[in-house]
């Protein structure tokens, strides 16, 4: 399918995971920030459970494969596992059970662990739904719309742009090393080989920086792209503000009404 280059960049609706976004990406970034902040003030299990119930279906509704969702959530829950292995046994004064070897499990520790589990999983789901599905380009535009300095968004875009080519170079060297029988593990005699890999990546990046910089200067690059204006359509902002606003009001109401 061909895209008209003259109209495509001016299209006001950003695309997320192939479908037209109904909420502006800048609203997602700001909304996520506010939601995360609101959750850090949350102290009741009911409010955290509500937040998780609202956020958990979102990655699936955004069309992410369940394997990806479960994999990312499992990785994020390693810290949660850490919490469950320590907090119930160390926090509190009212034991509810005693495990073998005299390990007491405290009610306060269990409650706090559950609260953190709900909050962390809610934020993981929100991050997956709205950050992970958005391209770096969209996020950079969203940050620019929110007033983040131009240099920083440019740095983000250029880093993301060149990361993949450097990664490809690194994989090539890794494959060559693997063919020679090199397996990564912590042995003193293998450290120089690891150092050589790191040096290769850094030297490659310095070399590429010189080449790309020279090429960009030749094309008249002065530190800014003549990017088209990314004016958000009003309905995409209003829709996002209403959605995040309703979710936050629900959270506040439950936080105050919860026993």
């Amino acid at each position: 399918m061909s895209v008209n280059p003259t109209t495509a960049p001016l299209k006001p609706t950003a695309t997320v995971a192939g479908s037209p976004a109904r909420i502006h990406p800048a609203v997602h970034v700001a909304g996520l920030f506010v939601c995360s902040l609101a959750l850090s003030f949350t102290h009741t299990l009911w409010a955290a459970a509500y937040a998780l119930a609202v956020s958990l279906p979102l990655p699936f509704l955004k069309g992410l494969p369940w394997r990806t969702v479960l994999g990312r959530m499992a990785l994020g829950n390693l810290f949660v596992l850490f919490i469950w292995l320590t907090m119930p046994f160390t926090l509190g004064q009212h034991p509810v059970a005693t495990l073998p070897f005299g390990l007491a499990v405290y009610a306060e520790g269990l409650t706090k662990s559950l609260l953190l589990t709900l909050k962390i999983n809610c934020l993981l789901a929100l991050g997956l739904a709205f950050l992970h599905t958005a391209s770096v380009h969209e996020t950079a535009k969203a940050l620019a719309t929110l007033g983040v300095p131009h240099k920083l968004t440019l740095l983000l875009l250029l880093t993301a742009r060149h990361m993949h080519s450097l990664w490809a170079s690194y994989r090539t060297v890794c494959n060559a090393a693997a063919l020679r029988g090199f397996t990564p593990c912590l042995r003193l005699r293998k450290l120089p080989k690891f150092a050589a890999l790191v040096t290769f990546v850094l030297l490659k990046s310095l070399e590429r920086a010189d080449n790309v910089d020279a090429a960009m200067r030749l094309r008249g690059f002065t530190g800014a792209f003549p990017a088209p204006l990314f004016a958000p359509a009003k309905q995409h902002v209003v829709r996002g503000v209403v959605a995040y606003g309703l979710a936050l009001v629900g959270l506040l109401v439950i936080e105050h009404l919860a026993p």
Binding site: L158, T159, R161, H162, M163, L166, L202, S205, L206
Partner: peptide, 15 residues
């Protein structure tokens, strides 16, 4: 010098 910083950032990210 943004280009150099970005390439170095990408290099450190990959490393």
């Amino acid at each position: 010098r943004i280009m150099h910083a970005a390439l170095l950032a990408a290099g450190f990210f990959v490393a």
